[in-house]
Amino acid sequence: MADTSLSPEELSRYSRHILLRDVGGPGQQKLKAARVLCVGAGGLGSPIIEYLAAAGIGTLGLVDDDVVSLSNLQRQVVHTSANIGRLKVDSAAERVAAINPHVVVERHALRLDAGNVADIVGNYDIVVDGTDNFPTRFLIADTAYALEKPLVTAGVLEFYGSLTTLVPFRRGADGAFLPSWRCLMPREPEGTALTCAQVGILGAVVGVLGTLAACEVLKLITGVGEPLIGRLLMVDIRDMGFDVVDYERNPATVAPKLT
């Protein structure tokens, strides 16, 4: 097991966490021991990566096969103009190292598919999904369920965002299993969903949703508070509305099997 003791430098770096009731030194050590996979190093991924790095997550896996482009920089704040044309995982890894050299970054410069997703997801404790398409969301959600990995998943478009946390392999207070992604969306949408490239996205919206997703990851690791399990947060930046909608597990839900 990895050494999670905190050096004098780390005690100082994380002092505001250690001061927090319910986090403290033990909570910080849990963060140091954690292995978190962030799928997508784009808009949502940017604040997720930066806040998890700053928080002292021990190992951060980054998945993205894309390169940084000029039109990314309006919202993907983990990247800089100097990194246009470079792999996003390389650009983000540099940023993580600059923020917190204690974090180990594992780069996966690839697109998740049925052939590689289980090996990658299986190597982490928690998955946070900041991808930009539904086929990958379903692939990640089904795999995380099958491998019993908690999943924090967010989506954005225009001025809006959604966020929820999924642990469908765990039982709730009533003894029943908790909802899965497919209790929200039973199947992939027909046709092609609108993308930020088609209809736009207010840059700071990904900052809001990505930061909230990072909060959910930190809560899951430290055990602080109540994660958004069985609850869907809908954010409407146009009128600054934050709605939490309860949802239930479909009784017909069965755990997916890995192919």
Binding site: G40, G43, N133, V156, S162, P189, T195, C196, V206
Partner: peptide, 10 residues
């Protein structure tokens, strides 16, 4: 009845 649009961007 609650209706949500696809929010698939990231």
């Amino acid at each position: 009845l609650a209706l949500f649009p696809l929010l698939g961007g990231g």
